[in-house]
């Protein structure tokens, strides 16, 4: 993820990200790493919304979003990328619109499809980092396995009611994967719908 010449910051970008580039931990070189980076976000819902918005605002150069759902009014209490007027539209469309409103200098690629065993490896191989904001166990295990098989680090998070959990899985380098933690899904009848 080192910045090549094509990822040099323009004056416009230096200005937009000035509160980053003045941090010693980031600097111009760090912001160039962000510009050169690509991140794939799974889901444009409760987790995917703020993830997409923050990564866009931060200046991650290429962000992909996968989701096959459309916006429902009952999503709007928590899925903050979408708006009342976007009800009925594909979530990936409305989140891309919001991300580019905040930061038109990045690229947002959207996939209005369900993540499946057929498309996951091909999709993951095009990105540096995978972020999982999915809401079901089938997708969570698929994301974990596909991230491992393509050698990508995975940012994992899940929420239920008032509680949440998060970790980073990068078993090729160190540490466990999701299966090390939960080798099997809960029985289907215990999974809240």
């Amino acid at each position: 993820m080192s910045a090549s010449n094509g990822n040099r910051l323009t004056p416009e970008e230096i200005n937009r990200y000035s509160r980053h580039v003045t941090l010693p931990e980031v600097g111009v070189s760090g912001q160039e790493k962000l510009k050169a980076a690509s991140v794939l976000s799974i889901g444009a819902g409760g987790l995917g919304s703020p993830i997409g918005i923050y990564l866009a605002a931060t200046g991650v150069g290429r962000i992909g979003v996968v989701d096959d759902d459309v916006v429902d009014i009952s999503n709007l209490n928590r899925q903050i990328a979408h708006s009342t007027e976007s009800a009925g539209q594909p979530k990936v469309e409305t989140i891309r619109k919001r991300m580019l409103e905040i930061n038109p200098l990045i690229r947002v690629d959207i996939y209005n499809t369900r993540l499946t065993r057929e498309n996951a490896l091909e999709l993951f191989s095009q990105y540096d980092i995978i972020v999982d904001g999915s809401d079901n166990f089938q997708t969570r295990y698929l994301v974990n396995d596909a991230a491992y098989l393509t050698g990508k680090p995975l940012i994992y998070g899940s929420i239920f009611r008032f509680e949440g959990q998060m970790s980073v899985f990068h078993p090729h380098r160190e540490g466990p994967c999701y299966r090390c933690l939960y080798s099997n899904p809960p029985p289907a009848s215990l999974v809240p719908s």
Binding site: T58, V131, G133, V168
Partner: peptide
């Protein structure tokens, strides 16, 4: 989760690995 992503890209801090 966005912060952890950014830390990995920057190579800064201690990730949740």
């Amino acid at each position: 989760m966005a912060t952890e992503t950014i830390k990995l890209i920057l190579g800064q801090g201690e990730p949740l690995i």
